[in-house]
Amino acid sequence: MSIDRKAAIAAYKERKTIAGIYVVHCAASGQTWVGQAPNLETIQNRIWFSLRQGNHNCRNLQAAWNTHGETGLTFGERERLEDEETAYVRNALLKERMLHWRDELKAEVI
Rank of each mutant, 00 (worst) to 15 (best):
W101S: 00
T42S: 14
A8M: 09
L105I: 12
N45I: 03
W48R: 07
I110G: 00
E70H: 11
L94N: 04
E85R: 13
Y22Q: 08
F49N: 13
C26K: 02
L40F: 02
V109S: 02
E14V: 02
N39Q: 00
L99Q: 10
E104N: 13
C58N: 15
R59N: 06
R15W: 07
F49M: 08
K6G: 06
K6V: 03
W65E: 04
E82I: 13
P38A: 13
C26V: 05
I9R: 10
T86S: 15
E96N: 00
Y12H: 10
N39F: 00
D83K: 12
G69Q: 09
S2A: 05
Q36Y: 05
I3S: 00
G69H: 10
I3K: 07
T86K: 00
K106F: 08
L73V: 01
A11I: 07
T71N: 15
R5F: 12
L73E: 07
T74P: 04
D103S: 12
N55S: 11
V34W: 08
N39R: 03
L94R: 04
A8T: 00
L99H: 10
E82W: 05
F75P: 06
K106D: 14
K16S: 13
V89I: 15
D103P: 00
A37K: 01
Q53W: 11
A37Y: 02
T42P: 06
I110R: 04
C58A: 13
T71M: 13
R59V: 03
A87F: 13
S50F: 03
R102V: 15
E84K: 15
L93F: 01
A87N: 11
H68Q: 10
N91F: 10
Q62Y: 03
P38R: 12
N57L: 09
M1C: 08
K95R: 14
R52Q: 14
A7S: 08
A11K: 12
E79H: 15
W48L: 11
R15T: 10
S2E: 05
K16A: 13
A107W: 10
A10Q: 04
R46F: 05
K13I: 06
E108T: 15
W101C: 02
Y12A: 09
Q31D: 14
H25P: 00
N57F: 13
I9F: 07
E41R: 14
G69P: 09
Q53Y: 08
L93M: 13
A10H: 04
K95P: 06
A63C: 09
H56G: 07
C26N: 14
K16F: 11
L94C: 03
S50P: 10
Q44S: 07
G35E: 00
R90Q: 14
G20Q: 04
I110Y: 01
Q44T: 01
A37W: 04
I18T: 15
N55G: 09
F75K: 00
N60A: 12
P38I: 11
I3A: 08
K16E: 15
R59P: 05
